[in-house]
């Protein structure tokens, strides 16, 4: 009974992983790419780990998979947050369709929005 559920969760995780990678290619600027890919790839890999735990049960491999999933859930948002702040301070412009930039107004002296077409 547990085994088909584990396989289904692994499949859902892999599908979300590939969707995150497609989002990394399709979206127009750094911030949107970071949004799409971080969310999808984190939940996808966490799903793979939970699936392995359900397939293997309380063996060494299953418990290690669960620990790895929890580590991933803690480290991945922090890494994304650091990259986002880094690229804001690096001066990467935002996409021309961006509507508002409060951070640039408060900290960087003006909105960091790309004005030219393209």
């Amino acid at each position: 009974m547990i085994s088909p559920i584990g396989w289904i969760i692994i499949w859902i995780g892999v599908v979300f992983d590939i969707l995150g990678a497609i989002g990394l290619v399709r979206f127009p600027d750094v911030y949107n790419r970071l949004q799409a890919s971080t969310k999808c790839v984190t939940l996808g890999t966490f799903g793979i780990m939970v699936g392995i735990f359900l397939l293997k049960g309380f063996t060494p491999m299953g418990i290690k998979a669960l620990i790895c999933g929890v580590f991933l859930l803690f480290t991945s948002p922090v890494a994304a947050h650091a990259l986002m702040k880094g690229s804001l301070h690096f001066g990467t412009k935002m996409w021309k369709g961006t509507v508002v930039d409060e951070y640039g107004k408060d900290k960087l002296g003006g909105e960091q929005i790309d004005k030219k077409e393209g």
């Binding site: 995780g13 892999v14 996808g44 998979a65 991933l72 990259l83």
Partner: peptide, 26 residues
């Protein structure tokens, strides 16, 4: 186009490799 895009790519690729390694272990 910029260095920040490349950094994001490296980060996401690292997490995908974690998934590949775990599936190989299975």
């Amino acid at each position: 186009p910029s260095i920040a895009d490349r950094a994001v790519g490296v980060d996401i690729m690292g997490i995908l490799f974690v998934g590949i390694t775990a599936l190989s272990a299975l």
